[in-house]
Amino acid sequence: MKKLADLVIKLGNVDRRWIFVIIAIVVMYPLFKPLGLPIRPTESSLQVYNAIDALPEGSKILLSCEYGPSTKPEIHPMTVGVLRHLFENGHKVYVTCLWPDGQFMAREALEQVAENEYDRTYGEDYVLLGFRPGNEAVIKGIVSDIRKMYTIDSRGIPIDKIPMMEEVKNIYDLDFIFCASAGYPGTVEWVQLAADPTGIPMSTGVTSIQVNEVMPYVDAGQIRGILAGMPGAAEYEALIGKAGIATSGMDAQSIAHIVIVLFIIFGNIAFYLERQRSKKTF
C-alpha cells in the first residue's frame, strides 16, 4: 500500500510537460481515427433549432458575426450550421459584424453555404453588410435606422441598390436575430440594446467560456436557446442532419475531457496523500 501511495505521489509531481504530451496525443488520435461517439442535442440547442425552424418561409434574419480566427473552431461551425438551416427553409439573411475579423469569417461561411451549397443570389437572398466599428453604437444604429450605419455593404454596393434592403429600414423590419459571439461586443450587447428593447426574438451561439455569462438570459427567456461551444455546434449539426467540422471534433473533445477529469481526480488523490504524509512527519 505504501509503495502504491509512493507511486501516486511521484506521478502527482510529474513534470507538467508530460501532461501536455498526453493531452496532445488524446486530442490527435480521434482526429486520425474517428470513434463515432453519439451526439445528443441538449435542451438549449434544441431551443435554438425550434426557434429557427418555426419561422415562416421568407423571414428576414439578422445574423451577426462577432468572432475571429482565434475562436473559429468553436463559433464558425455554428454559423455554417445556422446558415444551412436558414437557406434550407428559404429565409433571407442579413449579415452584420461588430468585430473586424467577423467580416472575413462571415464571407467564408457565406461562400461555402450560400454560394456553393445552396446557390443563393447575393442581394436577393443574402447580404453581407459588413463590419462597422462602434460596438454598442452600431447596434443602436441598426435598431433606429440601418442606413445611418450602412450606406454601402461589404462589397461597396450602395444599400439602396440592394433589392432585399428595400423593405428594411431598421431592426423592426426583421423577424429574428442570431448572434454568433465570442466576446465583447456580442450576445450580451445584442440582448441589452436590440432584443430586449424591441421584443424581436433572438438566439445565440457562444464560446464555451461565455456560456455561464449568457445562460441567465436563456433561463429568463430573453434569449431562445444557446449553442454552447463546439458541442453546441455539433448538436446543431446533428439536428439539421448535416455533419460538419464540429461533429468531427467531438470525439477528440470527449476523450480529452475524460483524460482531464482523470488528471484532476488523480492530482487530488496525490495532493491528499502528500498532505497526510506531511502531517504525520510533523
Binding site: 493531452i23 496532445a24 486530442v27 490527435m28 482526429l31 482565434s70 475562436t71 473559429k72 473552431p73 468553436e74 464560446t207 464555451s208 467560456i209 461565455q210 456560456v211 455561464n212 454552447a228 461551444g229 463546439m230 458541442p231 467540422i245 468531427s248 471534433g249 477528440a252 473533445q253 480529452a256 475531457h257 482531464i260
Partner: peptide
C-alpha cells in the same frame, strides 16, 4: 469546466 472545454476546442481547431 466551460473554460477547459473552450481551450480543448481551440486545440482541436489547430490540430485539425
Amino acid at each position: 469546466g466551460f473554460a477547459v472545454m473552450g481551450r480543448i476546442s481551440l486545440l482541436i481547431g489547430r490540430f485539425t
